[in-house]
Computed example of a mutant assay.
Amino acid sequence: MSKPIKPLRKAVMPVAGLGTRFLPATKALAKEMLPVVDKPLIQYAVEEARAAGIEEFCFVTGRGKTAIVEHFDVAFELERTLEERGKLDVLAELRASTQVPGSIMTVRQQVPMGLGHAIWCARTFIGNDPFAILLPDDLMQCETPCMKQLADAYEETGGNVVAIEEVPRDRVNKYGVLDVAEDRGRLVSVKGLVEKPPVEKAPSNLTIIGRYVLMPEVIGYLSRMEKGAGGEVQLTDGMARLIGDQPFHGLRYEGRRFDCGDKAGFLEAQIAFALTRPDLAPAVRDFLGRYR
């Protein structure tokens, strides 16, 4: 008799990075608080996770990141002012970003030792439960939220599921790359993972993006603090150890990803998201026409 699949209710969000590519804007502002149109990146990630049924969040933070948690708190004075001024639509949007009490916790990653180390820092929060990882720098524009697509695939397959996309062969050395056992189109069975391989040694051009559903056993491998690519504790290396003991799949998600850790990707996201807004799209199309 097959083991029942535990519901996916937890998400870890690593937000300890320094955001050096966006200095000086990120000198006093966490990069996850940079807005795309009128919402910060971290809010897009939390809303995506909530749409997948996730109820508990752990932010792996660093120094100077307190604004991230405060963003999801109740702003009593601001709410009262908006109510007094009759700006009830704005008030409703503001309240929608407030999280249920007790649903957010933070842990500190005092030393930047890689993504695998950041996830290990959340080990007490994870416990013995399956968990999602969302990297807010990867902003997703999908009809069905990307994490909901992964959660549905997890319900179907059990085990570990990562969002994947194909990249040009000469760029595989920037990603975690899949070694494919069976490619069934939407779902790919994985027999191996390699972090940032040299182009000539990459097993495929299918790469992992910043959305994961993982089993808690990965923490045991991360706790060994084995250094991988770049001299850091790599999440990809920990995930690779799970293969063979647990199901492991890649999901070709439906939608678009914007790399908001890159200036050009961030600017593209601003335009793409603004064009989906009826209140902004006409003006955006108008001024874009002037720059042809």
Rank of each mutant, 00 (worst) to 15 (best):
Val100Ala: 10
Gln246Val: 03
Val111Ala: 08
Gly261Lys: 10
Leu115Asp: 00
Pro14His: 05
Cys58Leu: 06
Gln234His: 08
Ala132Asp: 03
Met33Ile: 05
Gln99Met: 14
Asp259Lys: 15
Glu182Ser: 13
Val69Thr: 13
Pro40Val: 07
Val161Met: 03
Ile126Pro: 07
Glu70Ala: 14
Arg9Tyr: 02
Gln234Leu: 11
Ile271Lys: 05
Arg257Phe: 04
Asp152Thr: 10
Val162His: 03
Glu195Trp: 05
Ser189Gly: 05
Arg211Asp: 03
Leu134Lys: 13
Thr124Cys: 07
Phe57Met: 00
Glu47Leu: 12
Gly289Trp: 09
Lys191Glu: 09
Ala181Gly: 07
Phe22Val: 06
Asp73His: 13
Ala51Asn: 07
Leu288Ile: 09
Ile209Gly: 03
Asp129Tyr: 08
Leu8Ala: 05
Gly19Pro: 05
Gly114Pro: 02
Leu91Arg: 01
His117Phe: 15
Asp89Pro: 07
Lys87Ser: 07
Leu135His: 09
Ile5Thr: 13
Arg184Ala: 11
Pro40Asn: 09
Cys146Leu: 13
Tyr175Trp: 13
Asp259Gly: 08
Tyr175Phe: 15
Asp179Val: 08
Gln149Pro: 05
Arg80Cys: 04
Ile208Pro: 01
Leu251Ser: 01
Gly17Pro: 01
Glu79His: 12
Phe57Ser: 00
Ser103Gly: 03
Gly19Ile: 04
Gly210Leu: 00
Lys201Asn: 10
Val218Asp: 00
Asp259Trp: 15
Phe273Ser: 00
Asp170His: 15
Ala96Gln: 11
Leu8Asn: 03
Gly86Pro: 04
Ile208Arg: 02
Ala240Gly: 10
Pro14Thr: 06
Cys260Ile: 05
Val213Ile: 14
Leu34Phe: 11
Ala45Met: 02
Met225Val: 06
Val107Tyr: 01
Thr157Cys: 13
Thr236Pro: 00
Val233Ile: 15
Phe59Gln: 02
Gly220Cys: 04
Leu91Tyr: 02
Glu93Cys: 11
Asp137Ala: 15
Thr124Arg: 14
Val37Asn: 06
Val218Arg: 02
Ile5Pro: 08
Tyr175Glu: 00
Met1Pro: 09
Thr106Gln: 14
Leu275Pro: 07
Ser223Val: 02
Lys227Ile: 09
Val46Leu: 12
Ile219His: 09
Ala16Tyr: 09
Glu70Ile: 06
Asp183Glu: 06
Pro101Ile: 07
Ala274Ile: 07
Lys39Arg: 15
Pro35Asn: 13
